[in-house]
């Protein structure tokens, strides 16, 4: 029987990078053997990922820990999410994200998606090698609060500016915040092409979007 210490145990096991122990706690919740609600368990996972993010940003943890804790959280959420009553928790908003045309990298994008979902965002993943038009149309279709573009290659960095121009041409630039990140980009570049923010890593990107909501 799970005790009311379950959320703490869930957090502790996730932060110890212990997949088995985390899933054991989740299993208690799924079977109804816990005296905590599914929502409380979900909140515990989200809180643990907040700590992961801080450890990563503080240089205490690295990409491997970030990826693995994200995978543990994903496994936990795959079991917990279907049990959430509909409307129990409204998403913070929608983010459309993709890797620009010509670029096939997806690691950073996928980390961003994993953590954004755990933080409570609805995420539309356009994938890799995404043409300008697909980004622009997705903004039309999903009306997201933010559009995220990942770009790892210097030779494809021009695509970022093209997407922003495409948004302007469609009259949508002021309807969506644009955030960009990836090895090829810098704060200065992001500013020059007219994006709203540059994210040096996935966790900072999510922090920035949360601040946009708050303001």
């Amino acid at each position: 029987m799970m005790s009311n210490k379950t959320p703490q145990k869930l957090k502790d096991s996730l932060l110890s990078l212990d997949m088995d122990a985390t899933m054991e706690q989740v299993d208690f919740v799924v079977k109804g053997d816990a005296d905590v609600t599914v929502q409380e368990a979900v909140d515990a996972v989200a809180e643990a990922l907040e700590v992961v993010g801080k450890r990563f940003q503080g240089g205490e943890w690295f990409l491997a820990e970030l990826v693995y804790s994200g995978e543990i959280a994903k496994s936990a959420m795959e079991l917990l999410s279907p049990l959430m009553s509909s409307g129990a928790s409204q998403p913070l908003g929608t983010i459309v994200v993709g890797t620009v045309a010509g670029d096939l990298h997806d690691l950073g994008k996928n980390i961003f998606i994993n953590y954004s979902k755990s933080a409570g965002f609805e995420v539309v993943d356009l994938g890799i090698d995404v043409p300008v038009e697909k980004f622009v149309s997705a903004v039309d279709e999903y009306k997201p609060l933010a559009l995220g573009m990942s770009c790892l290659l210097t030779i494809t960095s021009e695509e970022v500016g093209k997407v922003i121009e495409g948004l302007k041409d469609r009259g949508n630039r002021d309807k969506v915040k644009v955030i960009v990140g990836g090895a090829a980009l810098t704060e200065e570049f992001a500013r020059e092409v007219g994006s709203d923010a540059f994210a040096p890593d996935a966790i900072t990107g999510i922090d920035i979007i949360k601040k946009w909501i708050a303001s």
């Binding site: 690295f62 990409l63 491997a64 820990e65 950073g108 990836g182 090895a183 040096p200």
Partner: peptide, 12 residues
């Protein structure tokens, strides 16, 4: 390494 630091910790 990647943009913000090593892919794995120096210890790992």
């Amino acid at each position: 390494a990647q943009k913000t630091g090593p892919m794995m910790s120096p210890e790992m």
